[in-house]
Design a protein around this nucleic acid. Structure first.
Lengths: 349, 349
DNA sequence: ATGAATTTTGATAGCGCTACCATTTTTCTT
DNA sequence: AAGAAAAATGGTAGCGCTATCAAAATTCAT
């Protein structure tokens, strides 16, 4: 905080980055070689106490901030990890990111965020662009990508974790849960409670193929039962509470024969419950409602929402830990982890 | 996708970053000078059509991904912008980030995410660390930082936008709203509806000083009125629906004389409403409830929640636009923007 | 005390890219 | 057609840091 130069450009007119205080300046002030300063900062134990403290003083005095670019370029190592998710509007991704962030931060890594808006083309571009940062690993949502994306990631030869869904084939590592199975379990539950005409309400199902997998799971189980049938409702727009609110009205009007609705997520399901409350529609009397995710709100609404709880933060933690394990040369406990799911049977069904 | 080398290390045993295909390789294949490839990629118009297509072919054939570190080091420019927020558990920050992300992405910038967990010490470290990426600008939540943080940011001499709150003194640019005013307006509203004993329910108010400012605003207005009084409740933990749910019970038991509760955010307020619904507590008959933020759910609960709507995504967009304007040399329309707020008087009061 | 093993420090040479200026080629002017 | 202006291309020299190996200083063993 003493004599940081106000100008961003050097006096000689040549390029300069930010504070313009370089490692060499520190070295000069501390009367040591630049490489020693580098060591003192990155590997303190390899420098004697004397020099270390002299260097620390110089660093503080000059307000030196290491240029990560230069360091990364020289060592071909960074501590920035791209995390690629479809969207930030969905709480689910947020919580996974949170888990990832917590673990990464604890190990001194930074998170470089990319969103694809469920567009695989954009995902491919993003992966390419982010690889330009020479990251030590990549975290990405989903198992389905363009062939191009798979190729790029495989060729990059770095640790990759695919998150959110669990499946047989992954690029490198995989942490998630089976959405197909989630759908089956919910179908099982609804059948057990006597529902026979079940609607699945989702949004943008062509893009959100994980929600679609839940539908497929449900559909399969209902087919097996031979006594029940389903109906698929696909709305445009994000899976918000407002959408669930609207959907309940629509569906009841156009398909009064339905006796249960399985929503693609808790947000929508909660919206539907709030609508039912407002309009005096009996749940589960008139129609049963189920969701997916196990958001905290699901247990607070009346009636409490039947849902499938997914361990989102755990997923983030696990994924980050696996990645870090691989980065530091070791191998993770397992290359594929199914974090599982838990059906919470509550009042709404 | 042709001949990407499987190894990460060079044959000569020296360091290599990722794909190891460099600009020089592309140049060799296209039979031009490296600098021409650089130009073809960064400033296509300055290269003839002939060479440009020859270079593009070479790039595709080799699967070349530019090394951003090297580029950034050489040009002292990056397209990565640090965004520093207290937490990801709060929807409010997410929506601002979303807005920021949309605008930044549209201009080819990347978002480097940092969270402080409401810890100013950590914030200072984060700022320092992120400046090491020589970013062209910085976005940070809040106007209150450690003196050290202010110094670092000012000395860095780059565009800085402070978001979320609007105030007189900012490091460089500021986009937000006045939380003090929000508190006053809510007090005004509650007074107008005849409430006189008002509780403010928040969490971690020492850290979340913006919530505290809302309380201060309310307190001031109530003092002026001379007829009303307030009471402050400060809970530990995050401001979740569950916490609002619990708080309603606590507060009614220990302070039955209260006739209104102003929650620090909509999440808590909605939790309280859901609890009231479940327990048959009349709102606003027994007690009025108000929130802050204007989350979509606030208008879906019964009774609909009175709240103050803050334009969060707009804040993110505006902030990002101002920053980009400054980065590209221009100056933003204004250095300080008050995005304003809107009180939605609904059924819960 | 003396040579060997160990620790600490330094000199050198890039990492992959772009700024800067010089050179060549093309287009324009009269 | 000859020279001037403009456009396209290239050579050189770093950006700030760290890997590698070499040298110096220290500690250890006998």
């Amino acid at each position: 905080m003493d004599k940081a130069p106000p100008e961003t450009t050097n006096t000689d007119g040549r390029r300069a980055s930010h504070g313009s205080v370089t490692l060499a300046d520190v070295a000069a002030l501390a009367r040591v070689a630049p490489i020693t300063v580098s060591r003192a900062l990155n590997n303190p134990d390899s420098v004697s106490e004397t020099l270390r403290s002299r260097i620390r003083t110089a660093v503080d005095q000059l307000g030196y901030v290491p240029n990560r670019m230069a360091g990364a370029l020289a060592s071909a190592k960074t501590k920035v990890i791209p995390v690629i998710v479809p969207s930030l509007s969905n709480v689910v991704f947020i919580e996974v990111i949170e888990g990832v962030q917590e673990t990464l931060t604890a190990h001194g890594y930074q998170l470089l965020l990319g969103t694809t808006d469920y567009n695989l083309e954009r995902e491919a571009e993003l992966v390419s662009a982010l690889l330009g940062w020479a990251p030590p690993g990549v975290m990405i949502a989903g198992l389905r990508h363009l062939p191009r994306t798979n190729t790029i990631l495989k060729n990059a030869g770095l640790p990759v974790v695919e998150m959110m869904e669990y499946g047989a084939r992954c690029i490198d590592m995989n942490v998630g849960l089976s959405h197909f199975r989630a759908g089956m379990e919910m179908a099982e539950h609804l059948l057990a409670r006597g529902y026979r005409k079940i609607g699945f309400v989702g949004t943008r199902l062509r893009d959100d193929y994980r929600a679609r997998q839940r539908y497929d799971g449900m559909h399969r189980r209902l087919l097996e039962s031979k006594t029940a049938s389903d109906m698929l409702f696909d709305y445009p727009g994000g899976g918000s509470q407002q959408l669930g609110w609207n959907a309940l009205g629509d569906v009841l009007k156009t398909n009064p024969e339905l006796d249960a609705l399985f929503f693609a997520n808790d947000e929508m399901a909660v919206g539907a419950i709030l609508r039912a409350q407002r309009d005096g529609i009996a749940i589960p009397g008139r129609i049963a409602i189920a969701g997916f995710n196990g958001l905290p709100v699901s247990s607070l609404v009346t009636p409490a929402l039947t849902t499938i709880i997914s361990p989102r933060k755990l997923m983030g933690h696990t994924a980050a830990e696996m990645l870090l394990a691989r980065i530091s040369g070791g191998s993770p406990a397992a290359r594929r982890v199914n974090v599982g799911l838990e059906l919470a049977a509550r009042e709404s069904t």
